[in-house]
Nucleic acid binder design. Structure first.
Lengths: 229, 229
DNA sequence: ACAAAAGTGTTAACGCTACACCCATGG
DNA sequence: CCATGGGTGTAGCGTTAACACTTTTGT
């Protein structure tokens, strides 16, 4: 018996963002120390409430911008969490997003303003509510995405060395990879451009820099190939 | 500046279910013909609103039960849709779930009560709101899940022939498979029990029936192997 | 005897893995 | 001249894909 929407419940809908970054060594997550209730003083994901005039994607973008100062960060919706008591203050559903960001490109001031801090995956503290679960789910998703879609674009500077790319994959997959096999596999994807330019900071010999070939990359994205690393 | 939850917006949160079934030939989706506004007379997914005292999973289960008479159907959360004008009546977010069900096990009366009908993937009509998009996303997800996890359990009768299983995979992947290679790959997963029993309806010779080995199946589920078909 | 589906193995191509040595340069 | 990271190729193995004929039995 349909009676119109009036009799239905409305709920708070939050958006929480798992923000991944990479610092040439570790895969990291950006967390904020809450200086507001509830759970003041504990670490948490950056989040906010969905406003009725924005989409979830918009909300995620707004929240990411608030903390990083950057717009159009790569983001993807992860999962909607709805345990009855997940938020002790009020019945709140949370749709989580994960984002990947070049760790150098955020705004330092904003980070400080929010008491934010990058944590290596191994050092993630107890978070409020179900945020640890969100992070774990995001890591699993990121790992799986790695074998279906090229990533890296979003986590690395524009020009990077093979070594950096390899370290990134190693950090994501939490697994050491063979240098030569890695290069072969990456090259077989045919999405990189080798530049006539070397990075001299990492060794005396210097290592060639690469760029993603945006066009080829975009084309591959639709293909859903499977890359075994 | 945190000001409490009072100033935040609340929204309607709907749950819509893509229900997959298999009839030995085609993969199908169960749709209902709406006899209520808005969009009365059009086809749509079965859905409902989240109540404030239930989780999204609960809501999906409730909705699935309402239409099929069955509880504990296999279900998985798919995605939350939030376009501003996706529902013309009121601002509503919808979290979609897809479910897979043995097509013989639903309750015929309920199906009739709701004017429900099974549609082959190729024949899906125009649906209300963004429901077509939901269905397409569900199909993609189901396809991908096929290569990561064994499925079939939920879509087939308890005892089934290799041919049925192969047809199921072919229907999901929309792709013809080689009989011998298929059997080898399925056997290599080691999750089937060959019964000493034949199904005589499909041929004069008769074909052996199989069952899933629930225990082994559950064990594999966590493993996240990759099955290439 | 024939029609209709079931059942069964082999081979060739390909892709993946494992593996070790020389190179260039700055200090 | 040496220490450090960069760069490069191959052979063996395992996996996958392609492929066709025989079996059974009801009519």
């Amino acid at each position: 018996m349909y009676t119109g929407y009036n009799l239905e419940d409305r709920v708070f809908l939050a958006v929480d963002c798992i923000i991944f970054g990479f610092d040439d060594e570790d895969l990291k997550v950006l967390l904020i120390k809450r200086d507001f209730e509830p759970e003041k003083g504990k670490w948490s994901l950056m989040g906010g409430f969905l406003k009725s005039n924005e989409t979830l994607d918009d909300a995620a973008d707004r929240i990411l911008h608030r903390l990083t100062g950057v717009h159009d960060i790569y983001q993807e919706q992860l999962y909607s969490f709805s345990d009855l008591d997940r938020d002790p203050v009020a019945r709140t559903i949370s749709t989580s997003y994960y984002a990947i960001i070049n760790i150098e490109k955020h705004n330092e001031e904003l980070i400080q303003q929010y008491n934010a801090q990058w944590f290596s995956l191994a050092d993630i503290p107890d978070l409020i509510f179900d945020h640890n679960e969100m992070v774990q789910k995001a890591i699993r998703r990121l790992r799986r995405r790695t074998s279906i879609n090229p990533i890296g674009f979003e986590l690395l500077p524009e020009k990077f060395t093979m070594r950096q790319l390899q370290k990134l994959y190693e950090a994501i997959l939490d697994k050491e990879l063979d240098k030569r096999n890695f290069i072969n596999k990456i090259n077989s994807m045919d999405i990189l451009i080798k530049l006539n330019e070397k990075d001299m900071t990492s060794s005396t010999k210097g290592s060639f820099l690469y760029q993603f070939d945006q066009e080829k990359y975009d084309k591959k994205k639709g293909d859903n190939f499977y890359l075994k690393l």
